[in-house]
Each structure stands twice: as structure tokens, then as C-alpha cells.
Design a protein around this nucleic acid. Sequence first.
RNA 1: CCGCCCUUAGCUCAGACUGGUAGAGCAGUCGACUGUAGAUCGACUUGUCCCCCGUUCAAAUCGGGGAGGGCGGACCA
Length: 344
Amino acid sequence: MDTAERFDLATRNTAEVVEESELEALFEEGSPSAYIGYAPTGEMHIGHFTTMRKLADFLNAGMEVTVLIADLHAHLDDNKSPFELLDARSAYYRESIEAMIDAAGADADAIEFVRGSDFELDEEYTLELLRMAAETTVSRAQRAGSEVVRESDSPKLGSLLYPLMQTLDVGALDADVAYGGIDQRGIYMLSREVLSDHGGQAPVCILAPLLSGLSGGKMSASDDASKVNLTDDCDAVVEKLDGAYCPAGEREDNGVLEYLEYLVFPVIAERGAEFHVERPEEYGGDLTYDSYADLEADFRSGELHPADLKPAAGAYISRVIDPVRRHLRERPELLREAYPETYD
RNA sequence: CCGCCCUUAGCUCAGACUGGUAGAGCAGUCGACUGUAGAUCGACUUGUCCCCCGUUCAAAUCGGGGAGGGCGGACCA
């Protein structure tokens, strides 16, 4: 595979790359390393799943991939995870992420897993954190984390340490590429600005689009109807899709289309399969698509109606998450221990 | 260490001065209308009024104590 192909693979289906020329240079030189961090807070959902698909692209492009389970960040962000639950939630996240990577068509064994508290308490790291804290203004740290850290009328100091630590993580993991959702942009721009003064080098940032929620607007972790959970059974998935915001012919804010584009089609393409839509004879009979572009074209023209698309989308999404769902059901203690209030 | 303010529905808050066991907006649920959803109408649901003790026939409301949160002052050899 030549450099251009590797570049295309690594950057397809992304929202932004900062800077493309730097990424090209990295591919010219050899095998760049990439990392993505997940703070083990609430239950994982389909939004997480869509970012996993990219890790398969990275591996196929000959990159080294590290997944960081950022346990301390989970606690630092407004106590989203209580300190006592960090072990259980880290275990649950790691298992779920491995299952998602496998389900997305990549090899989880090829990915290195690291837990934040394993290195973020090292003396060297801590000292650098304090030096950075001395140099960074409160407003700069707030701005960097504003899209990531939970808003509060009484923000804790931890919310300001959060972006600084994420910046040091890039250096500590020796990552050439920082991968994350576009909401991470503010933090990684801070990283590019200051990391070279703290023992690292500015990362190339590959930023994934944030998917719309099923109820219109942004997907909300706290709104159950706006997202598909990994543990939702097939009926629940179909029901959520049936209730989804999905104006005929419109792509804007259309979570149904986005799930198909960023999750379903990449995965079925990996398997060489097609997307089949059942449709009553009165509206023209069944349809089959082998690319998302064709499906979107039909949807925009009005040929493909939401009422026919939704049940098909629900069934395919359910099929994609099925291996993950089964894995979590075989190990019920993972969820029970990570979320004792919900699963006792 | 001292002082002041806040705590009522899932969320944002009103009600407290002048006691009669609670309201609005948003959210949510359900119908109608669209071959989906949304929008729009129509209907509906929701509460240890932070906790304890006291006064009273009666306390979200008054008095005392406590908890949690916020703000300010003081201290700065």
C-alpha cells in the first residue's frame, strides 16, 4: 500500500485533520503511532462504536494503535465516576472496547491498552503537570475543555487539570497522532500549542464527526431515546429507530443516515455484504444497496421513504452490535459492578 | 475562624413576609394529523417542598438544631 492509500484510509470518514501535510510526512517516514482515550464514565453506546471503526482503518494503514482507558479523567470530570468505581468501570470499558473492535472487523489483540492511573501518577508526569499548571491561565484551560468537561455552576479544579493531563498523555504515550471526536478539538489544539515545552511534540489530530442523536440535535448521553445502547436488544433498537427524527429527503441532523454512513456501511463493506430494504409492493417493492452514497441519493430524491428505511436500519444496527451485546451478557458482572445503582 | 445567601417535579424556578399539606415553563407520556419521526394542535402524568426537633387544630411557610452548596471577610510571623 502506498503512502497516498494509507493516508486516505486513515482519514476517510473524519471531520477534520490537523495538519494533513504533517500526517503525510509521518506516513513517508514509517509507521506512525495513534492513540485514543476513553474516560470510563457512563455506559458505552453506539457513538463510541463508530469511533472504533476508525481504529481498524489505522491498523490497516500500518499504524500502531493505543487505546487509553482514562480512569482518572473519569473522576476528574465532575466526579462522573466515583473513585471507588474506577476499577470496575475500567474493566467494563476495556472488555466492551475489545468487543467493539472485533465487531468492527479489526483485531483487538493488535491494539495496546493502557490505563491512565498506570502512568499519570509517575513522578515525572506529575512534575510536568504542575509546571504546566503554573503556566496555564484558568480561562485557557476552561476554553480548552469546554466541549468535553461537564458544565457546572461550581466548576472543580479537576475540570481544569483535565485538559492539561490529556495533553501530557499524548507525550507520555509517545503518540504521533491524537484521535478523538471533534469535541476534543479544543484540548488537542492546546496540546499542539504547549506540548513541545513539556517534553513532547505537537500531535497530528484526526477528529471524528459527532453523530446526531436519534431525537434530533446532538446525541445526549443522558437521553436514552437519543442513542442506541450496546445492551439494547433487537426490539429496543428497532423501536428507538422507529421513533427517530428522520425528515424525508433531509440529511441534516439525521441520526438514522449518519449511523448507516459511519457504522453500518463500513462494517458490512468489510464483510462484502449488502444493505437490503423491505418495501411494500404498493410503494415499489424491495431495494438493495451496496454503497451508502447510493442509499443517500435515493433518500434525498424521495425514492427511499423513512418509514421503509427505519426498520431496515434498526435491524442492521442491531446485527452490528450483536457480538458486543452477547459478550456483555455472558459477563453480567462487568456491568453490575461498574454500575451498581442500575444493575443491582 | 466570622458573616451573608441558597436547597421545592427529570431541568430552570415561583410560592415563604400575611401558616390551611404546592404551582409555571421546559422535558416526558398518550391521542389527532402527516406512509416515519419532527413541527402543530388536544389531553395527561410527575413531588420524602434537604434532614431532625419544636410551636400550632393545621408547617414548604414560624422557631431551634443539623447537612450539603455558594459568596464575602478576617488571618497572612
